[in-house]
């Protein structure tokens, strides 16, 4: 009986999952681009830029995700019109920017100084040295912690629930309300769906890490 309901409602759950994945892709991409830029600014930037970057990063790491979502949805939409989905992308994306900037900063700084020196000594400008020598090494260091960030953010998409984004968790809630269904089983299925996507994503990222690993870069022990 409850399984029949779940089966009938599965298209809604899958649609919710699809929305969650879109949100995840958007916020991780935003965080990747801005986070990398922020890391470069924090390391190589002029001190005024650096200071601004650090302030941004502290604020977005220091405020709860739910509060950020509420601020962006109810606060910012007073001035700029945007959908709840867009507000979620911005709130969670900027928060991920702050976290990813720290992943990339650590990864860049773990590339030995001598690498930059050797590049400069052959007449490579600093920007090119960063692009050709430092970042290719740093990204290999970053992928482990980045996999972690992927998992956190996948789970964080469920918080967009509070501002009305109809993602997987909210679809689950709808099913429970409209069918007086079994809360435990419905959310159990929802949990399983998050879990499966999480494992799949981790598996793919480990695969990718393995492919770009070269001797000299320690590989994580399974």
């Amino acid at each position: 009986m409850i399984w029949e309901i779940i089966w009938n409602q599965m298209p809604y759950l899958l649609h919710g999952l699809w929305i969650a994945l879109q949100l995840l892709a958007a916020l991780l991409s935003l965080g990747l681009v801005l986070g990398l830029a922020l890391a470069l600014i924090e390391i190589y930037g002029h001190w005024t830029l650096r200071w601004t970057g650090i302030l941004f990063e502290r604020v977005f790491r220091g405020v709860p995700a739910v509060v950020l979502l509420l601020l962006f949805y109810y606060g910012v939409t007073d001035f700029i019109e945007m959908s709840s989905f867009m507000a979620a992308v911005l709130a969670l994306g900027l928060r991920s920017t702050a976290y990813q900037s720290q992943i990339f900063r650590g990864a860049i700084q773990s590339v030995p100084q001598g690498q930059m020196m050797a590049a400069q000594a052959m007449g490579m400008g600093r920007a090119r040295a960063v692009g050709w020598i430092i970042l290719p090494q740093a990204l290999r260091h970053a992928i482990g912690p980045w996999t972690n960030e992927f998992s956190s953010e996948l789970k964080a998409t469920s918080l967009a629930y509070v501002i009305g984004v109809v993602e997987l968790t909210r679809q689950g809630k709808y099913i429970v309300s409209s069918t007086q269904g079994n809360v435990l089983i419905v959310f159990g299925v929802v949990a399983l769906m998050y879990f499966v996507v999480n494992r799949l994503g981790n598996w793919a990222l480990y695969k990718f890490e393995g492919r770009i690993t070269v001797p000299g870069f320690e590989r994580r022990a399974a």
């Binding site: 001598g114 590049a119 000594a121 090494q137 070269v214 870069f217």
Partner: peptide, 15 residues
Amino acid sequence: QQVAFVFQDFNLFTH
């Protein structure tokens, strides 16, 4: 580009 430098600890590009 015309003054090459050889380092004590080699500094080959690891990747």
